[in-house]
Each structure stands twice: as structure tokens, then as C-alpha cells.
Amino acid sequence: MRPLKKAEQELIIHLLKDSPKRDYFINKLPHLMVEEMNDGGMGSLKFISTSTEKIIMKEDIAIIDLYDMDGIPLFISLLLGTDEELFELDVFKADFSPLKQFPVPPYQ
């Protein structure tokens, strides 16, 4: 368990740019804890919930398609849980290989 890194926060802020809950989530980012997921090094993160109830994924609230440094497509989703809080930052690399570099601005 660890806090979000700067690059992770920047990507999440970018993903939230059109969300009506943008400010709510951005204010929480410095205080959130995450666990790196066992995804073969693709960079997915699970947000740690403070709820005592079982939380499951509810919906995507933002999606972006990018490329890793090696030119392989990345499909990134920010997921909301049933508690209406951030649930997961899902990073999927098209060839299932480990991420070369976590995405940094500018995002294209």
C-alpha cells in the first residue's frame, strides 16, 4: 500500500477533466492509498477503500487510449466503485508486456 505518485495523480487529473465530480476527486488524490495490481507490470492500481462493506466495480468514469514508449497501444480506464469512490486505474497494454514508462503529459 502506498500513496499515488506524481505521474499517477497527473494522469488521473487529466482523466477527470470532464467529470462533474472532478474537484471532489482531485481534492482527495493526495490522501488516497493504492496497491499495485498483479497485471504483469502494466501499471494498474487498486484504490484502497475505507468502507467496511464489500465494494465492487460499478462503471468507467473516464477512458483514454495512449501509447507506451515502445509504440504499443495502452488502454486506460478510471473506474468507480459501488461506494461512488475511485475503485481502480486500469492500464492495459495491447501486447500484455510490462509498461516501459508510466504515461506523462502531454497525453495524446
Rank of each mutant, 00 (worst) to 15 (best):
R2P: 06
P3Y: 12
P3L: 06
K5Q: 11
A7P: 01
A7W: 00
A7S: 12
E8F: 05
E8T: 02
Q9H: 04
E10I: 07
I12M: 01
I13S: 05
L15I: 04
L15Q: 11
L15D: 08
L15E: 03
L16W: 08
K17E: 13
K21Y: 13
K21F: 12
D23C: 03
K28T: 12
L29P: 11
P30W: 08
H31T: 13
L32D: 00
L32G: 02
M33W: 09
M33R: 12
M33P: 00
V34S: 07
E35L: 12
E35Q: 12
E35M: 13
E35T: 09
E36Y: 03
N38W: 03
N38F: 00
D39L: 01
G40K: 08
M42H: 03
G43C: 04
S44Q: 05
S44W: 02
F47L: 08
F47M: 01
I48D: 00
I48K: 11
T50W: 10
E53M: 09
E53D: 15
E53L: 14
K54D: 12
K54C: 02
I55P: 14
M57A: 14
K58Y: 05
K58R: 14
E59R: 15
D60N: 14
D60G: 06
D60A: 13
I61T: 12
I61L: 15
I63C: 07
I63R: 15
I63W: 10
I64P: 02
I64E: 06
I64C: 08
D65K: 10
D65F: 03
Y67W: 06
M69I: 07
D70H: 11
G71F: 05
I72E: 02
F75W: 08
F75C: 06
L80H: 05
L80M: 15
G81S: 11
D83N: 15
L86V: 04
L86M: 03
F87Q: 03
F87W: 13
L89A: 12
D90C: 05
V91S: 02
F92M: 08
D95Y: 05
F96C: 00
P98S: 07
K100S: 05
Q101L: 07
Q101V: 03
Q101Y: 02
P105N: 09
P106H: 04
P106D: 04
Y107W: 15
Y107M: 02
Y107R: 09
Y107I: 08
Q108G: 14
Q108H: 14
